[in-house]
Every structure is written in structure tokens, then in C-alpha cells.
């Protein structure tokens, strides 16, 4: 609205060097030329202003404010008392926090590692110009991505169900006893990880596929002439060429993996504890439980700050690692 107003009010501004238009309109528009160019000089800032304004209010300010709130005993109804770093001291002595930390990392590893390996494998299979049904394969792999996490969780909760779940029926058919996935710590992590994996493997496959297609064919031909077979080509040509993309996907999966929330929340409904023994409560869910279940805004913010720091640390490690790897070549 603000953006479109000034340019519209200046009809066809002219530049001084444009002799043709100056001739046709005479000398009169000279004055307008000035105002138009002043608007033009200001225009770029107006074009980028909406983003910066929105980010300042709804991104930057809340992020900085989290650090501030974390220093208070902050209750939305009760009031605020400054308590310094007490929230952090309490948090790092809180067994529930370390439990959530362990669960988060366990779920992250169980979902990311198989996911990226599977994606790499499938991308390799898809990377062939003679493959039939290529569009069918690519499109169906993206279906999980458009399915909401809520729907995904509900359908997988049913598949993993203790009594009538399809997976347990399948296990029973082979003489294996039913597993109570939600009750067991490790089994519940597998259940949550499966949901994350299902949602993202196709997406990562397509990203790897795009990277594979960008590898020049001559490198493979040269490798083949040098006597490298399929596996050697994969390890000595494909993997090194994909390094930047692999590192990118690892960073993105890390940021996503540390914020897993919806799956454990819905699985622990109506509670917020991630199972009766907190066996699958993640850090994000723990933050939500403290912030919006117990209305401990200060304590919840301390968890948010900790998560934030973890993500920054992991991103920096990944970045340094990627720089070292790329400079090795």
C-alpha cells in the first residue's frame, strides 16, 4: 500500500538523457524529473522495508527478549521478579531437562542418519535419464512433505498402536510379540523417528538428485577409463561432489531435529509430558510444557535460550567442518 503510492502518483517520469521524450513533452516536466528521481533513489529502501519491519517486530525482538525473560521468575498472571541466572541453575540441575535432551538427541540421530542414507540411495537410483515413471517417483516422494505433521502423527500412532496397530499385527503374524511402542523409551523414539523420516526422506532425495544431476558426466567417464567400477565411482566421484549438499542437509536436519515438537505432543495427549515416564518428551515439548502448561514464562525462556545456543553451536561446528572438508580438496 505504502509502496505503490509514490510511484503511481508520478506519471511516467523522465530521465534527463532521454531526449526523445523531452522533445515530445517540452520543458515543462523538468521539475517532475527531479521529484521522480528522488522517489527512485528512495524506492529500494521501501521495497525491502516490509521484511525488515516484520522481522524486527516478530523475529529479532522476541529472540532478544527471550534472553531477558529468562532472567525472571515470570508468570503471565502473577508478575515478574528478577532472579538473575537462577532459572539456568535450576534448569541444569533438572533431571527432566537432561531427560528431554537425551530424548531429543536420540530421536534426532535415529531419524537423520537413516533418512539421509536412504535419500542418497534413492537419488542415485533416480539419477538416470532412461528411467521410466521418473515423474511418478519424484512426485509421490513429495507427498509426505505436503502431509501435515498432525495428520502424519495420527496415522502413524494408529499404525504403531499397541492392540490393533498394523505393525504389531504384522509382527504377530511372524510370531513376534506385540510391542507397546509408546511405553518403551527406545521403541517410542523409533516411532517418532519414523514419522520424521517418512516426512523428509523424499524431500532430501530430490535435493540430492538435483546435486547429482549437476555433476559433469565427463568426470564419470574419466573415472571409468581409469578403471573405476560402480562402487569406486560412487565413493571417489559422487560422494566428494555432493559434500556441500550433504553438509547442507545435515545442518537443516539438525535444526529441525532439535525442534521436534508436534509428534511427541500429540502422542502424549492429553498430557504434555511425552509419555507417563517422559520417555519421549523432547526439548521443544519441555519448553512448551513449562511455558504454556505451567505458565513459567521465565523457566520456559531459559529452555528456549538453551536450545538456541545448542543450535548455534551445532551450526558453527557444521560450518567449520564443511570449510575444512572443502579446503581439503
Amino acid at each position: 500500500m505504502v509502496l505503490s503510492a509514490p510511484p503511481r502518483s508520478t506519471p511516467a517520469p523522465q530521465r534527463p538523457q532521454s531526449t526523445k521524450s523531452a522533445k515530445s513533452t517540452g520543458l515543462k516536466p523538468r521539475r517532475r524529473i527531479k521529484s521522480a528521481s528522488r522517489v527512485d533513489a528512495f524506492a529500494p529502501y521501501m521495497y525491502i522495508a516490509p521484511f525488515f519491519a516484520l522481522f524486527a517486530v516478530f523475529g529479532l525482538f522476541p529472540t532478544v527478549f527471550t534472553f531477558y525473560v529468562a532472567l525472571f521468575d515470570w508468570n503471565p498472571i502473577g508478575g515478574q521478579t528478577f532472579i538473575g541466572l537462577d532459572n539456568f541453575v535450576t534448569l541444569y540441575g533438572d533431571e527432566r531437562f537432561w531427560n528431554a535432551m537425551r530424548n531429543t538427541f536420540s530421536i534426532w540421530i535415529l531419524s537423520t542418519v537413516p533418512q539421509l542414507l536412504l535419500a542418497l540411495f534413492l537419488a542415485q537410483l533416480l539419477n538416470n535419464a532412461r528411467l521410466k515413471f521418473a515423474n511418478l517417483f519424484r512426485m509421490t516422494m513429495l507427498v509426505p512433505y505436503i502431509t501435515s505433521v498432525v495428520a502424519t502423527t495420527i496415522v502413524f500412532a494408529s499404525l504403531f498402536g499397541r492392540d490393533y496397530g498394523l505393525i504389531n499385527s504384522f509382527l504377530n503374524f511372524f510370531g513376534v510379540e506385540s510391542i507397546d511402542f509408546a511405553a518403551n523409551t527406545f521403541a517410542s523414539h523409533i516411532m517418532v523417528s519414523t514419522m520424521v523420516l517418512w516426512r523428509w526422506f523424499g524431500y532430501n532425495t530430490l535435493i540430492y538428485l538435483a546435486a547429482l544431476q549437476a555433476i559433469p558426466k565427463d568426470i564419470y567417464e574419466a573415472a571409468a577409463i581409469d578403471g573405476a567400477g560402480g562402487f569406486k565411482q560412487f565413493f571417489y566421484v559422487t560422494i566428494p561432489s555432493l559434500r556441500p549438499v550433504i553438509i547442507f542437509t545435515i545442518i537443516v536436519s539438525t535444526i529441525g531435529g532439535l525442534q521436534v515438537f508436534t509428534e511427541p505432543l500429540l502422542l502424549s495427549a492429553p498430557g504434555l509430558t511425552g509419555g507417563s515416564g517422559r520417555q519421549f518428551q523432547t526439548l521443544s515439548l519441555f519448553m512448551y510444557e513449562q511455558g504454556f502448561g505451567n505458565f513459567q514464562f521465565g523457566y520456559g525462556s531459559a529452555i528456549g535460550v538453551t536450545l538456541f545456543a545448542l543450535i548455534v553451536v551445532f551450526s558453527v561446528i557444521n560450518y567449520l567442518l564443511s570449510r575444512r572438508i572443502t579446503s581439503d580438496d
Binding site: L122, L125, L126, N128, R130, L131, W198, G202, Q213, K217
Partner: peptide, 29 residues
Amino acid sequence: RAFAGRVRWWTYAFLFASVAVSAFPLYWM
């Protein structure tokens, strides 16, 4: 640049399996 080797039968087997895995939860829903 596209890679164009012979496509083996198991390539299709794996890809159709991944299609099934992607689509099954929706079908089950």
C-alpha cells in the same frame, strides 16, 4: 550431462517400494 545407463529391475523394485511407503499412510488414513 544426464547420466543414462541401463536401468536394472531392482532399481524399479526399490523405487516402487518407496512409492508404496510414501503413499501407504495416506491410503491407510
